[in-house]
Amino acid sequence: MITESFPIEIQKTPQSRIYELEEGLKKFGRIFSDHMFVADYKEGKWENAQIIPYGNFSLSPATSAIHYGQAIFEGLKAYKNRAGEVLVFRPFDNMKRMNKSAERMCMATIPEELFKQALFTLLKIDRDWVPQVEGSALYIRPFMFATDEYVGIKPSDNYKFSIIMSPVGAYYSEPVRVKIETFYSRSVEGGTGTAKAAGNYAASLYPAKLAQEKGYHQLVWTDAKEHKYIEESGTMNIMFVIDGVLVTPPLSDTILHGITRDSVLKLARHYGIPVEERKISVDEIIEAHNKGLLQDMFGTGTAATIAHVQLFNYNDKDYELPPVENREFSNRVKKHLDKIKTGEAEDIFNWTVNIDKM
């Protein structure tokens, strides 16, 4: 079977594993749908586009991504509406961001038509893997890595682009406890912090492990120069409501340009809520907390959507936040986003793509 617009060869699995879907909702990112998309970049062009049964890659020990870290990825989600149609949330924004990451990591970019055809064809084939349970979704992971069989420092000439999908439930089962980091840094000016590069996440694992050993779920990263200003939190952008104003750090080359972040800011402005994208010092957050003006603190990201912060720690002191049930804005925007994603609310910004109408 060959698709018409972009040639994708399709080989379907002889035996579906759809019975694993329910288990996938209990273990985030552990269970994968029946099929995956793969394509290769060779001699300056993309070729061998295929949808095949989910399985392992065969790689040379000299594969350059293993040695020099040219690897990027994205994360987005698909949902079902009441009619059983599959809706994808802001896929074209993920595509654009992936290509920006590719440019920063000196990798081949992915043609828009290839990304679209790969994603929508794969979703149509594995549509039964999109759960309809409240709070669940099909998590979609596009990724690309260098495949030169060469041990030497240079940009790869060859790449593999793939998409895998995983049925998921909630990323966090409870409000999170976070620790403000004052020593380690996630990114620096002029670095790769704005790219979804694999190495960025690898570098964060050790300091995050130290925080988890002390009972915290995640870190809040601060600027690398002074460790004075808030940047982002673990796998998420971070936001505060201070005396009725939604405040979040401005985008820069040290902060990931989050798609959920952008969605929350657009909805806040639509609600008429004051929004400030500016530098926020740790001292300002503590002062607002002590004065009773820190009304909300939460993370935003594809995996968690909205992750309420229960408390933050700074210099070995915990600061408790107001009860989650009393937080007006984050609860409102989370419910609104969930309804937009599942077709229950008007999509005023045209964010969702209905693959059954493509």
Rank of each mutant, 00 (worst) to 15 (best):
T3W: 02
E4A: 14
F6M: 02
P7Y: 04
I8F: 04
I8A: 01
E9F: 06
Q11N: 13
K12M: 11
P14M: 09
R17V: 12
I18C: 00
E20H: 14
L21C: 12
G29R: 06
G29F: 11
I31N: 07
I31G: 01
D34L: 00
A39F: 04
A39E: 05
K42Y: 15
E43H: 11
G44E: 04
E47I: 08
A49G: 03
I52F: 00
Y54T: 09
G55F: 00
G55C: 09
S58K: 07
T63P: 02
Y68D: 07
G69Y: 00
Q70P: 05
A71V: 14
I72P: 01
N81R: 03
R82L: 13
A83G: 15
G84T: 05
E85W: 05
V86T: 14
F89L: 08
D93V: 05
M95V: 14
M95K: 12
K96S: 13
A108K: 01
P111W: 10
F115E: 04
Q117K: 09
A118R: 04
L119D: 00
K124G: 15
D126K: 12
D128S: 14
V130I: 10
V130N: 07
G135L: 06
A137Y: 08
P142F: 06
T147H: 02
D148G: 11
G152A: 15
P155M: 03
P155N: 02
D157C: 06
K160I: 07
I163Q: 01
I164G: 01
S173E: 07
P175L: 10
P175D: 09
V176S: 02
V176D: 04
R177H: 15
F183R: 11
Y184L: 08
T192A: 13
A195F: 03
N200I: 08
Y201L: 03
S204Q: 02
L205V: 14
A208P: 03
A208Y: 06
A208G: 07
Q212F: 10
K214Y: 07
G215K: 06
H217V: 08
Q218G: 08
W221S: 03
S233H: 12
N237R: 00
V241Y: 11
V245F: 10
L251A: 13
S252Q: 12
S263T: 14
V264Y: 13
L267W: 10
H270Y: 13
H270G: 03
Y271E: 13
G272Q: 07
I273R: 08
P274R: 10
V275T: 11
I280T: 00
S281R: 06
D283N: 11
E284V: 08
E287W: 07
E287G: 05
N290W: 00
N290L: 14
K291N: 14
L293Y: 12
L293M: 11
M297W: 11
G299H: 04
T300S: 15
T300F: 00
G301I: 02
G301Q: 07
G301T: 03
A303H: 02
A304T: 15
N313L: 02
Y314G: 13
K317V: 14
D318F: 10
Y319E: 10
L321P: 05
P322L: 12
E328D: 14
N331G: 10
H336E: 15
L337S: 12
K339V: 02
I340D: 04
I340V: 12
K341V: 10
E344M: 07
A345I: 09
E346L: 05
M358P: 04
